[in-house]
Amino acid sequence: MKAKVLLLIILAFFLSSSLTTPTYFSELGKFVILVHDVSPAYISQIERLASIINEYGLQEKTYLFVIPNHGGGMPIEKDKRFMDLLENLSSWGYHIELHGYTHVGREFKCSREEALSKIELGIKIVKAEYFIPPRYAISAGAREVVLANNLTVIERFYLYSPEGMVYPILNREYTWRISKILYTYQFSRAASAYKNTKGTFFLSLHPTVVDNPEGVKFLHEFFKIVREDLG
């Protein structure tokens, strides 16, 4: 049984390792936080997550990927508390970006026409520079539409620029349903990857990380390493 667990860990590490050298983006620097699923559904979690990020002075390193109409029934422009929160976070240095439109299913695994409709709705509400497709699922045609609207597309392994360039990236999420059993392994992986990469390190998070004690522990310990490294 122990041998099987060890094999699974080794396999997971291999599959999560990029076979290409991650790109360093001078405009982003060594470290970036990508917060997915920013919507009124998680407003209390976003507030708590922001307080941790603020504690380590990482506001300007944080990109909040907003869902303009979560589930098709949560238009952010009609939620004053949420819009006020975004305005405050922006004034503190956070970047407000776009994460699909409704986040229902694999919504950008779609036709060019459907993608254009959703992007036009999204950019009317969120003035963004970056776009992450929900679940990282996007068709080639939809990607072309997003890029044509001058949005940089961040996917799991690559970043696509409106200028037509494709860059390999190191983009990882270590805190999704993190448990006590796997905490040491996940934290060690993250710390090692951050220390050893020569490219920009993208740390993906979801707001619900703050609902998990192990997730909160990870944030404090990892952000401390980053803060000491960045000075």
Rank of each mutant, 00 (worst) to 15 (best):
30 K>N: 11
156 R>Y: 01
34 L>C: 08
145 V>I: 15
70 H>W: 10
188 S>R: 00
178 I>S: 01
60 E>S: 06
56 Y>T: 02
57 G>L: 10
145 V>T: 08
72 G>H: 12
47 E>V: 15
188 S>H: 01
10 I>S: 03
52 I>D: 00
71 G>M: 12
74 M>G: 04
85 L>H: 07
4 K>L: 15
163 E>M: 11
75 P>A: 11
223 F>P: 10
175 T>H: 01
198 K>R: 12
61 K>L: 10
115 A>I: 15
7 L>V: 01
231 G>W: 10
171 N>C: 06
107 E>H: 03
116 L>Y: 01
77 E>P: 13
165 M>W: 13
3 A>T: 10
63 Y>C: 00
163 E>Y: 05
143 R>P: 04
218 F>E: 07
41 A>M: 12
206 H>D: 09
62 T>F: 04
191 A>E: 15
186 Q>P: 01
69 N>M: 04
49 L>C: 11
161 S>K: 13
54 N>Q: 08
100 G>E: 07
43 I>Q: 09
180 K>V: 02
6 L>W: 07
75 P>Q: 05
66 V>R: 15
64 L>M: 13
176 W>V: 11
26 S>G: 07
227 R>L: 08
71 G>H: 14
172 R>P: 07
74 M>S: 12
137 A>M: 06
226 V>S: 12
133 P>E: 10
148 A>Q: 06
222 F>M: 02
196 N>W: 01
63 Y>T: 09
182 L>N: 13
31 F>E: 14
162 P>V: 05
9 I>T: 13
42 Y>V: 08
178 I>Q: 01
155 E>R: 12
191 A>W: 03
180 K>Y: 08
229 D>P: 11
195 K>A: 12
21 T>N: 15
